[in-house]
Design a protein around this nucleic acid. Structure first.
Lengths: 379, 379
DNA sequence: CAGACTAAGTTCAAGCATTGAACGAATGAG
DNA sequence: CTCATTCGTTCAATGCTTGAACTTAGTCTG
């Protein structure tokens, strides 16, 4: 720590505060000063390099009432952006995201990645990313995979076995000459509900079902990943200790009762769309399959809530699509099993984000990092 | 924020860093400078008021090799202390703790608190605290109860129903004219393993069985309490969704299989001591009861580890006393059910702290707060 | 025993981000 | 046109850390 560094930390912290306020909404220097608790003078200082660096723009002026009109500041429409990409077993998705939280481009293509090598997949991802990124400066790329990740390397991914041990972040980074951050799709889907906009508060769990069940846990406004990146493995929470054998070696894992494959099999359907049609026409076998899955999921979620004590559960992905047929059973199990005290109540909601949630979260990883470490914006 | 405040924050942060280094071990100004990354000059500045205020003392001098001898600084032996108290169904315990982490006094008395009112219990606690605190300045008192707590008020405590809704912190504070912090015994037992000394790393779960089962969760060096203080309710993790009915309204809770009352009943014993004697003499009914409890606990812990992803489980309280007869079954279930990847391995250890763990943790709450908010030391 | 050496602790001017007050700028009201 | 009002900038003051120079208090060598 040199002499400058301590004061520089203060400055960077204030810069972060200001940028966070701007993500919330644009505002003039005076308005930002009021919102952040800093002085107008400091705001002039802090925003000057952001304006000079093309991160922010000053809008013409807003004529509103008496006094000198304010010139609101907002993120520059030609400023830097981030891109997020999702590698899944049946599709690839990419999305570009501005610092202001606006989606710029998105693309989703079917792809059978199960048999593909890491290089083949990354080539295709890099191509997609090039398609959606224009001339604007790129802050970096976020990359999502269905599996556990550590230090940019895939540790475990039951459904894409050829990717295990592969340093995806570094390899995609080399292809694009870009900083790449690799993370679990469950974490990133959860992040998409936290950043850039709070869609479910600062403490919640986001649950999706693909082949397995993944939960992204947000505690105190931060995605909780655990020591080794294994946190939130809701799919392997045990609900029947002598139950069905699981691929993980355990018995009675939630995944074996509430996984999408189980629901489809029980309902006698091949695809999620077919299942939804059956549900809409009142097919009782389909409804029963979904209800039973909801019960199992509810038991697992009750356990999760008793351990994490978060007030909200967001059902995303396939679960969001089945929400109306699923939620009653889930809610009922949770209500009966979550420890109550005072006005504690488990709130269950469907994700509003749809199929781009993961890619958006991956991009959000990058814009969030840029705001939290503002020095990156000047690099 | 006035102009001073930003710089004051820097100073307080550095003060905290220095105090944390001193909790680790005493050291001269030069040594502390090296350990904290600050300069010798800053250390002179920071320690001066601590010495003047009687928080630290300068030891005579250590003659060790060449150069001017260093004068190590340590916490003043007559400096301020904290006291911790535990209210339990069958006993009360208190312990005083110095800033250096040394235990000064402790006392444990049997007490039947089940039927007592809050006032009766607090009178007795205040009396005990007065017995163990000498003339040294008191930084505050920590108070532990078996139950859920929020803002100094008891929210839920199945075994001490008369205390529900009672503002114990304020009421004990009034009796002693002292700052009192109220917390859950499970959290405080966990804290005792984290502060003042790391006994199980920075990420672990501490589990005890009394009437119920309580887990204190430490994530990233902080006790995790959850949004409403309900986090870590391992006792109500479901391991058999259609299992035994629990007092909480759910079915198949871990508590119903691994609670101390269940173990004793299954073993046909009345007290923990009698159970231990039976185990030592090779009583197979007792051994089987403990083994079965260990299995159930292991299933619940596996679920917990798959959600929190911490590397270590500490068995404390009664479980620590049963450790040698319990650990194999627990470990075996965990090994079979915790999701593995790389060199991930669930480490199971017995708490070394014994029956004062909770009271010590309660006192630690206060000394820790004093170090983390050093301005309190000058009040 | 004297002088060289070594390391601890202190002194002090320099650097820097924020602040508050004063000031200049831009507009509406009368 | 003048005053009130609000926005944004300028500037001296504040106070904490820093690094280098300096002082202090010992050991080591011959």
């Amino acid at each position: 720590m040199t002499t400058v560094d301590h004061l520089r930390q203060v400055r960077l912290g204030n810069l972060r505060t200001v940028l966070l306020a701007l993500v919330d909404r644009p505002g003039s220097r005076a308005d930002l000063a009021a919102r952040t608790g800093l002085t107008k003078a400091t705001l002039g200082n802090l925003t000057e390099p952001l304006l000079a660096g093309g991160i922010l723009v000053e809008e013409p002026a807003t004529l509103a009432g008496m006094g000198r009109p304010s010139k609101p500041l907002r993120f520059h429409p030609e400023g830097p952006v981030a891109v997020g990409a999702e590698i899944n077993v049946s599709h690839l998705a990419v999305e570009t995201l501005g610092l202001d939280g606006e989606t710029l481009e998105r693309r989703l293509v079917p792809a059978d990645t199960r048999g593909a090598t890491a290089d083949e997949v990354l080539d295709r991802v890099a191509e997609l990313i090039r398609e959606v990124t224009g001339p604007r400066k790129l802050l970096g790329a976020g990359l999502a995979i269905p599996g556990v990740v550590h230090d940019g390397v895939v540790i475990r991914t039951p459904n894409l076995p050829k990717l295990v041990g592969s340093p995806l972040a570094a390899n995609l980074g080399r292809r694009l000459d870009l900083d790449v951050e690799l993370d679990n799709e469950a974490n990133l889907a959860a992040l998409a509900h936290l950043w850039p906009h709070h869609l479910a508060g600062e403490d919640f769990v986001h649950v999706t079902a693909d082949v397995g069940i993944g939960a992204g846990v947000v505690l105190n406004g931060e995605v909780y990943r655990g020591v080794s990146g294994f946190a939130g493995e809701l799919g392997h929470v045990v609900i029947e200790r002598n139950g069905v054998l699981c691929t993980c070696g355990s018995r009675g894992c939630v995944e074996r009762y509430a996984g999408l494959d189980v629901i489809l099999r029980e309902a006698g359907r091949r695809t999620l769309n077919s299942l939804r049609k059956a549900l809409d026409t009142g097919d009782s076998r389909a409804q029963e399959a979904v209800r039973k899955a909801g019960e199992a999921l509810g038991v697992g979620l009750a356990t999760l809530m008793n351990l994490f004590d978060v007030p909200t559960v967001v059902l995303g992905g396939s679960y969001a699509l089945l929400y109306e047929h699923l939620s009653a059973a889930v809610q009922s199990e949770m209500d009966g099993r979550v420890l109550a005290g005072g006005e504690r109540h488990a709130r269950l909601v469907a994700s509003p984000l749809g199929e781009f949630a993961v890619a958006r979260g991956a991009a959000g990883l990058i814009t969030r990092r840029a705001v939290q470490q503002p020095e990156r914006l000047f690099a």
